[in-house]
């Protein structure tokens, strides 16, 4: 670490001397990172959505006939609470249901004001403790008198989670692929410098410089390339995704009753991830590119 200042200075000198190739690398890696960030945004939004939906639907809703009395509902609740795998069961009046609905629609809730009377039924909600028992509970609920319908979303949730997992794994594979390409790009850029400086490197070794001492500035050059690419990518992502949320956020919310992940929350995580990624891509690239020149 004594020579950190020296290495840092040399890194910038080297970056400058190799400016054209450095800029080309930065361009290429920034492109990779932007594609990466696209996938990140997709994965984060899908995962968040999946979590929300799962939370919403870990329950069975029994819609009651309008003729069913609250006493009958109470009997059902008592019966259900005695069943295996039930965490809780409670009554939800049509007024409560409407209020929730309004809540979910948020600013657009005024649209519901135009309804003459409340079309929503009263219901009994079962909060499921043990998902294994969900199917049996749904079947049990079907047998009650005075019910209109039993809504249980397990298969929907399952499908959704499966789709989410597919998106996550697919994105991960593509991201790893992109990261490897980035490393190759950096390593080729630096190999060019190293190649031009093979003579210099051999002289340094004659004078007694250690491999790490020689590697330092090249490592620095790679890391500088990585950090600049990360900074540009994070900046662009912040700008573009911010605009996207501004433009589409409301529509997405109306269509899916799900908010997009806010840009400020996203960008903080992004900044760290991309910084780490840039540093790793840069250092891996430079170490790989020097291997051949430093052995022996």
């Amino acid at each position: 670490m004594k020579s950190f200042g020296y290495t840092l200075k040399q890194s910038f000198v080297q970056f400058g001397r190799n400016l054209n190739m450095s800029l080309i690398s930065i361009f290429a890696i920034t492109c990779m990172m932007l594609i990466l960030s696209l996938f990140f945004i997709l994965v984060i939004n899908v995962s968040t959505a999946a979590e929300t939906i799962k939370g919403d639907y870990d329950s069975i809703e029994i819609f009651l006939d309008d003729k069913t009395t609250p006493e009958q509902a109470d009997d059902m609740i008592t019966d259900l609470k005695a069943q295996d795998g039930v965490d809780d069961a409670y009554y939800k009046s049509k007024e409560q249901a409407m209020a929730e609905f309004r809540d979910r629609w948020g600013e657009n809730g005024y649209l519901l004001d135009s309804l003459e009377d409340n079309p929503l039924p009263n219901s009994v909600v079962i909060v499921i403790g043990d998902l294994e028992k969900a199917d049996a509970l749904a079947a049990h609920a079907e047998k009650f008198d005075g019910i209109e319908d039993v809504k249980y979303y397990k298969s929907t949730v399952d499908k959704l989670l499966e789709a989410t997992r597919f998106v996550q794994i697919g994105a991960l594979v593509i991201m790893i692929f992109l990261i490897i390409i980035s490393i190759v790009v950096v390593s080729n850029t630096i190999k060019l410098t190293v190649f031009n400086r093979a003579e210099e490197i051999s002289i340094m070794k004659y004078v007694g410089a250690t491999n790490w001492f020689i590697r330092g500035p090249f490592l620095g050059e790679g890391i500088i390339i990585g950090i600049i690419s990360a900074a540009i990518s994070v900046g662009l992502t912040y700008f573009v995704y911010g605009k996207l949320v501004d433009m589409l956020g409301e529509q997405v919310y109306q269509m899916l009753s799900m908010p997009m992940v806010p840009v400020n929350f996203l960008i903080v995580n992004f900044a760290w991830i991309f910084l780490a990624l840039g540093v790793s891509i840069g250092s891996c690239g430079s170490i790989i590119s020097m291997r051949r020149f430093l052995d022996a």
Binding site: R17, E199, E200, I203, K205, Y206, V207, G208, N211, F213
Partner: peptide
């Protein structure tokens, strides 16, 4: 090896100076 090279000074027929460093920097490098 680097430690050995520092204990043994080496001079070649073709000088082997670092071309992008000044005289001062070349010597300072060691």
């Amino acid at each position: 090896v680097p430690i050995l090279r520092r204990r043994v000074g080496i001079v070649f027929q073709d000088f082997r100076l670092l071309p992008k460093k000044t005289v001062y920097e070349n010597v300072a490098f060691a």
